[in-house]
Amino acid sequence: MSGTRYTQFCALARAAEIIGERWTLLIIRELLLGPTRFGDLAARLDGVSPALLTGRLNALVESGVIRRATLPAPFNAQVYELTETGRALQPAIRELIRWGGRFLFPMRQDDTFQPDWVLLALDAIARREPTPACRIGLRVPHPGGVAVFIIEGGAEGTRIAKGEIEGPTIETPFDVLLQILARKLPLDDAIESGRVRIEGSLRTLGKLPHLFDLATARDARSG
């Protein structure tokens, strides 16, 4: 258990004791993407000390939120992974990502970025109701290369996965993509300014903002 303790018979207080410490939510964010080794967690959580990370992980193991596991051969590496209790946090994390989007811009000069975070961010704003049927490739440049994703719309809502397709594709930095999805930056303007590169049908790519509800949330706040 973490060092913080609230003497209140309140479920929110209990939750805050477990996940309210600094770095804890970001550890859970990383483990939502899959089992992860200690060294990889330390590298992705730029700024956390090994001692502090060890303490946070031990507290989460003690609380039953995560567990230690060993990858099968040939890896034979110890990893941390979410338990069923830990994975039950996913809807709450999704809502926190949506809420945190209000404060995402302007970007800070020292902000780091991991391409895997695109999956969690887009999942948080993906429409859960039927969306226009389409299949769009997304390429997100980052310092280590280009991350590739597939975005699909259809009767079951919007789905996002890693992968690359042959077909309509948009390549743009993630901050520019978010501005397009929020309809703060028209796709045509982004293409003309060189901030976006496209391949394939512009008509299909124009459906992209309709696959997410970021614009709806923004309009509701400004109404």
Rank of each mutant, 00 (worst) to 15 (best):
T36E: 01
K184D: 12
R98M: 01
L211N: 03
P50A: 08
Q8S: 07
R128S: 11
F113V: 04
L32N: 09
L208R: 03
G223L: 09
I170W: 02
S193Q: 11
E21R: 15
D123R: 15
R29P: 02
L177K: 05
Q78H: 02
R56N: 05
I18D: 10
P115C: 04
T169Q: 11
R128W: 00
L60K: 01
I66E: 04
P72I: 07
G137C: 06
L122M: 10
R98Q: 10
E17Q: 13
R68Q: 12
L45W: 02
A124W: 04
M107N: 05
V48L: 06
A11C: 09
R221H: 15
A11Q: 13
G153D: 01
L53M: 13
S63A: 15
A220L: 13
L202D: 02
L57I: 11
T172H: 07
D40E: 09
S2R: 09
E192T: 11
P132A: 08
R37V: 00
K207W: 09
T83D: 06
T158G: 04
G34S: 03
S49G: 15
A11W: 11
G157A: 10
S193E: 14
V61P: 09
L185P: 04
L181N: 03
F113W: 13
I125S: 05
T24N: 02
T172A: 13
E192W: 12
L25S: 14
E192P: 00
L60R: 03
H142I: 01
P35R: 01
E84R: 14
A121S: 14
E84G: 11
F38I: 00
S222R: 15
A155Y: 07
I180Y: 04
E30A: 06
R29K: 14
D110I: 04
P91N: 06
H142P: 02
F105M: 06
D219S: 14
R197M: 11
T36D: 01
D123T: 12
D110V: 00
R221M: 13
L104I: 06
R218T: 05
G39S: 09
L31E: 03
G157K: 07
S222E: 15
L12V: 00
R102C: 04
V48H: 03
G167M: 06
F149Y: 15
D111S: 15
H210Q: 15
R135D: 07
L138V: 11
P141W: 05
L214I: 01
V146P: 01
E129Y: 04
Q109K: 11
R68E: 10
G100R: 08
F103R: 08
W117D: 15
G144E: 05
P115A: 10
N58K: 15
I125C: 03
D116A: 12
L82W: 00
E164V: 01
S2H: 08
F105S: 05
T70I: 13
